[in-house]
Amino acid sequence: MRKKVHNGLIYFLESIILLILIIIIWCIASETGYINEILLPSPRMIGQTFIKKLIDKSLLIEIGISIGRVLKGYMCAVIAGICLGVIIGLSEHVHHMTKIIIQILKPIPPIAWIPLVILWMGIGETSKVFLIFLGGFFVILLNVIDGIRYIDPKIVEVSSAVETPKMKYIFQLVIPAAMPNIFTGLRVALGTSWSCVVAAELVAASSGVGYMISNARNFGQMDVVIIGMISIGVVGKLMDEILRLLEKKILAWNF
């Protein structure tokens, strides 16, 4: 146990060192003129712009707006994904009936929906939230369905042998048993939802990180573009960490 903690710390330090190393090389290459600053701004430039954007709070505001949108769309995806997933997963009949539709809809990336979604819902908030919803929904749905379908039939027999009422069966057995899979879905879906918000904002928005990037692109501010990109990455990682902690807490029995 002690050794495991020890190794974890070393890996973490190593990954930080690798990161710093890459930045240092990038710095040196920029300062010595190996890299054209118009094509790739130097870390120093990026750092300066970053501090400026922190001080005038514009970066945090844009990130906050994007996160707000993601949370709305993602929550819709969670609720719809789990409810429909439970219904489909519990019934062999419904599962076979819906299988083909789901399998065809699933590979369509949310970006491909953009023209239709804008036509239907305009370029306001609803269309963005809907795209985020699409980005998370199928991942959650499929994981919930699989989680339920692969519950050990031996455990189900314990319940059916004593004629457990349906609701008790669903809430005390089916959902907890599928929870590890459901959580996998929730985590992957949060990542895909987050990617979708940026895609949505790149197309039609006047706020958010995606807007910040596309706007900076029009003015040739590659430093702002990179700050936007890194923000997306960092926020995505942080959100995943939060869900991971939540998972460890809720699924303590599984670790």
Binding site: K154, I155, E157, V158, S159, A161, V162, E163, T164, P165, K168, Q172, L173, P176, A177, M179, L251, W253, N254
Partner: peptide
């Protein structure tokens, strides 16, 4: 009553809740 070959306990429930689950 049936005692299964494998214990078939629900890992997400405590001992007490596992036993209580079968009372309906």
């Amino acid at each position: 009553g049936f005692v299964y070959q494998e214990h078939r306990l629900f890992p997400w429930m405590t001992v007490e809740k596992n036993v209580r689950f079968v009372i309906n």
